[in-house]
Simulated assay, not measured.
Amino acid sequence: MRPLFSTQIQRHESIIAKNKTLSDLLSSAGDAFPGSDYRPPDHKNWMSGLDPGRLRVDQIVWPGTHNSATDEIGIRFISRPFARCQSLSIYEQLVAGVRALDVRVQEGRRVCHGALATYGVDVVMADVKRFLSETESEVVLLEMRTEFGHGDPPGEYLVDQLGEFLIHQDDRVFQKTLADLLLRRVMCVWKPMKSPSPKRGNPLWVAEHLRDDWIDTDLPWTKFESNMRHMGRQEPVSARKYSYRVENTVTPQTDYPVWSVWQVTERIHGYARLFMAQAVARGFGDRLGGGGKK
């Protein structure tokens, strides 16, 4: 027991040290960056206040969530704390200002996170359509992917449900203005596990149009620096034909058990603005935009 206990103490000390590194950086450098003083009075309609006729898609930083549709996953007080990444429904997140959604699905058209399943994809579709019906100038980036280890649901279902709103796959979209997209308003990236990927011109977008560089760690400073390093390797947004997602989250590890996902994710969530400020300070400001930040 002594070696195990000693390891746990070392892991705890490492987490505290990594948290302090981020906290100290925030205290010394601040989290201000060009445009950071903008505070939309209405989060539900924040895009409409950005002059959609002039603002290009590649100039927008899309606030997003990780495992977006997990608010009711698992059994309350038993399995839910280990898989619930969001406490708000899809509709509530969109109203709060989220514009990039990450939804994991399985063969039965149910949303899932690992082995745990929750409500059907119909609930997600209904929430998205409800939000679109209540707004006029808001665009949503929706990623639907088959969870690892599961079979693919039919991608045609997404087209059937969202067809009238889907922005068709087109590399030129990233240089278009927000106003150019308002006739449809949903960019849906479909990432099946085994089924064929959508073809060019399809209503659904292929995985290559939404990229990220995920590392599995519960250490906030490690994740912060990894995100910065990978983003710095991307092309400037003006030259890209894809969205690049920064995963501003950390994940529980088996060698340091916790009773809830929130114990871990809260270590880094407060530093999203610091990340953008540091990106600008390190010369990566032209890489920001055109992708989701979670």
Rank of each mutant, 00 (worst) to 15 (best):
G53P: 06
L50G: 04
Y91D: 00
Q93G: 00
H66K: 12
S27N: 13
L94A: 08
D31M: 12
Q106P: 04
S27M: 06
H113F: 09
E156P: 02
R145H: 10
R39M: 10
K20H: 07
P81L: 15
E72L: 13
R130D: 05
F82K: 15
D160P: 04
G108M: 12
R76N: 12
S23V: 01
P34C: 11
S87F: 07
M47L: 14
D160I: 04
S27V: 06
P154G: 03
H150V: 07
E136L: 02
P153N: 10
R130S: 04
L88R: 11
P63N: 15
R56Q: 11
R104V: 08
F82C: 15
G35Q: 11
C85T: 03
M47G: 04
F77N: 13
D37M: 12
I75T: 13
S137F: 00
V105I: 14
E143R: 15
R56V: 08
N19I: 07
F33D: 14
I90V: 14
L50R: 12
L158F: 06
G155N: 02
V95H: 01
R54C: 04
G108C: 08
T118P: 05
R145S: 10
D37I: 02
M47F: 09
A96H: 11
V121S: 06
G155A: 09
D58A: 07
E156G: 14
M47N: 06
H43A: 03
L142Q: 00
A69E: 10
A69W: 05
S28G: 00
S23C: 02
A29Q: 12
H113D: 13
D160F: 08
P34D: 09
V57C: 10
V111E: 02
S87C: 11
W62A: 09
Y38C: 01
L132D: 03
M125T: 02
K20A: 08
D122E: 15
